[in-house]
Design a protein around this nucleic acid. Structure first.
Lengths: 208, 208
DNA sequence: GCCAACTAGATAGCAATACTATCCGCTATC
DNA sequence: GATAGCGGATAGTATTGCTATCTAGTTGGC
């Protein structure tokens, strides 16, 4: 397959495909001469994965590159991949990390996780993100929202069991690795979309 | 309070405060002369809300403006506010909306919502986002992930009931309105952070 | 064999976003 | 009455995610 075909089939413009090649998101095609290269199904698949991560998951080009490098690293054990995906999707962080208020929120996050018996690395980006949200709610005087945390934790614990089980059920490593990435990123998109829909339904039917 | 104090107390740089004033995120202070204005607690609070929405919720300046205008519109009924918040946080959309594959995914999303008995507006952005994710999973050959959808829906239905209940329990309209916004945006941040932590825990403890 | 169309690779340009810096004329305050 | 700070305006900057153009070489249809 020539690059123009790759572009046409995938729906990604030719300059953009070249950009992704330059940025190392898309591996180069098999060289067929000095200025010709051959692309195959794997390139098409990779291109679709890139677009899904960016458009649906909201990842940046740098984030996508990080995830894909982890995906391509065959020496990396499966559970490390999840951490890599989480690091790649960790977006902007609050400016006040390190202040007294934030550190208190961070301790609260660690306490919640410990109380659940969850074993997570102490430097997981999600712990900081949780602290960001807790600190923001406290600062805004909306601490009553924090009573929701336990329910959230209970729910995601159940969901995570099913998600991990589903991915581990896949026989091949390649499928598992891609499953981790898409499960993390696209699963999050599905969950938040459904949460919004549930909110609209509940709000509409229980409103005054 | 002078603008320099507002900046110092909030930790937001003076040029940035001026930028937010220009962009209409922060209402102007009460004029105290030709070149002096007075800011109060409400400005400080608003500033903190802006930073929370941007840093924790990942909203753009335009998104924040949209949300805040809805918050300030005292004529807007509560359940409309939720829709406004959802529109403001709807990020990038996929390019393939309108293709056959996407329309099928969109129909699937509508079907799922109907099967649950949820009543949501047919043009809710979350429906399109759900369709985006479903279409992406199908395109990547990961349709087995779709079996998780029912579990997600079940979980968020429970959560939404508690969230809406909590916000409605507030007496005053002003608190309710801010509760909707922070609940939507910061609640989402907490939920996704917890989901990632639960995934890491489950993956670490059930791995081979 | 010829020529238009395409190719890889390199470089430069562009639009949007979220600030940041500077200047101006004025004024509050010491 | 100096001077530090103010509001308002305008212009500049860094980053991101493309897009356009150029060079030099190759392919494919005739």
């Amino acid at each position: 397959m020539k690059v123009s075909e790759l572009s046409r089939i995938s729906g990604v413009s030719l300059p953009t495909v070249k950009y992704y090649l330059r940025e190392g998101l898309l591996p180069p095609g098999r060289p067929m001469g000095r200025n010709q290269a051959d692309y195959d199904e794997s390139h098409l698949r990779r291109l679709r994965l890139i677009r899904a991560l960016m458009d649906v998951g909201g990842l940046s080009v740098a984030g996508v590159r990080q995830v894909l490098h982890a995906v391509d690293d065959t020496a990396m054990p499966g559970h490390h991949l999840l951490g890599c995906a989480h690091e790649a999707i960790a977006g902007v962080s609050r400016a006040d990390r390190g202040t007294a208020g934030w550190l208190a929120a961070r301790a609260e996050a660690a306490r919640l996780v410990a109380a659940r018996g969850w074993h997570v690395h102490d430097r997981a980006p999600a712990l900081d993100q949780l602290a960001d949200a807790i600190a923001a709610l406290r600062e805004l005087g909306q601490e009553d929202m924090l009573t929701l945390l336990d329910g959230y934790a209970e729910a995601v614990e159940q969901l995570a069991r099913r998600e991990v089980g589903l991915v581990l059920a896949r026989g091949d490593r390649a499928g598992m690795v891609e499953g981790v990435v898409t499960g993390t990123v696209l699963g999050e998109a599905m969950l938040t979309a459904l949460r919004r829909l549930a909110q609209e339904h509940t709000s509409a039917t229980t409103s005054p």
